[in-house]
């Protein structure tokens, strides 16, 4: 029995001089909803496209469920979807459903139609005539209905209003519980999808930052607030991820959980200690330590 859903080994991809993926090695666990997080241009889409065979890697190897990735791809056991797939102009949604039905043997047409009804998408309409949010809903619904062993969602909720997004999150979670499978979900809105995720994969500038369980991510960093001299006297360079000095109140981001010894020491010194959300974790771990503020923008 293969332990991992996806095993990536030394994956490299370059577009001319731009390094999109720089030797990523990671093993993704089976039957998890994994958040693929990273800033713009960090290599999320490239990673997904290489997984689905839409792009070729310069070097490295991908295996899925212990098999060659291509076998999974051609077998229709994985799906990659995004907010704006090139479905072609003039195709009605019912036609697209028909295409999906041919492409994926386990495609649940009934479920797909129910989902589209839930998202208030008229089946007779042409896909190219839909709004961005509606297109996202169509692709999301179709992808969910394939029930593939490996589902890759690349920014699937773009353009959807908050009500539809909440609905989509609910559907995703519920259907995952009904039909457990591996879902890799990339999004910039980590705050919203945090509750869905069981694991998180953070990449930055084509490199893997971490792949952790969400509980571990939540305990990865903590924040201390206080006066600049108090914080400066407390923090040690190796523990500090980020520090922002301000005249009245300064703060630092440190490694460890709010229940760590370091956090307890901070509390003892009268500093305020708080948890760092996974969204902030992804921000602080991918920014330079001494970030240049925005104040310069308004200076004469």
């Amino acid at each position: 029995m293969e332990e991992f859903a996806v095993s990536i080994e030394g994956l490299k991809k370059t577009y001319r001089s731009h390094v999109a993926l720089d030797g990523i090695t990671v093993n993704l666990n089976k039957n998890q909803i994994i958040g693929l997080i990273g800033a713009n241009g960090s290599g999320k889409t490239t990673l997904m496209k290489i997984c689905t065979g839409l792009e070729g890697a310069d070097s490295g190897r991908i295996r899925m469920f212990g098999e060659d990735a291509r076998t999974m791809i051609i077998g229709g056991e994985m799906i990659y979807t995004m907010h704006d797939l090139p479905v072609g102009r003039g195709y009605g949604i019912s036609e697209i459903i028909r295409f999906y039905k041919i492409a994926y043997t386990d495609f649940d047409e009934n479920f797909c139609k129910k989902l589209l009804e839930l998202f208030e998408i008229p089946l007779k309409k042409s896909c190219s005539a839909l709004s961005q949010g509606m297109k996202s809903a169509v692709h999301f619904s179709c992808a969910m209905a394939t029930r593939c062993r490996l589902t890759l969602f690349d920014e699937p909720f773009i353009g959807m209003d908050i009500a539809k997004r909440k609905l989509a999150y609910e559907v995703l979670l519920r259907d995952y519980m009904e039909h457990p499978r591996t879902i890799l979900l990339s999004s910039h809105n980590l705050l919203e999808i945090e509750g869905l995720l069981s694991e998180m994969l953070l990449i930055h500038k084509g490199k893997l930052v971490f792949y952790q369980d969400m509980d571990d991510v939540r305990e990865m960093l903590f924040r201390v607030d206080g006066k600049e001299e108090e914080i400066s006297g407390f923090v040690e360079k190796e523990d500090t991820i980020y520090m922002e000095k301000k005249e009245i109140e300064s703060f630092a981001i440190l490694r460890g959980s709010v229940e760590s010894d370091l956090a307890a020491q901070a509390l003892k010194r009268g500093l305020t200690v708080s948890a760092v959300t996974p969204e902030d974790v992804s921000v602080y771990l991918t920014m330079t330590k001494e970030r240049k503020g925005t104040e310069d923008l308004w200076e004469c």
Binding site: L54, I73, G88
Partner: peptide, 13 residues
């Protein structure tokens, strides 16, 4: 083959 790139398949197939 962008019109079928969303369905399972490799560049070759």
């Amino acid at each position: 083959n962008d019109k079928i790139s969303m369905y399972p398949g490799t560049r070759q197939s």
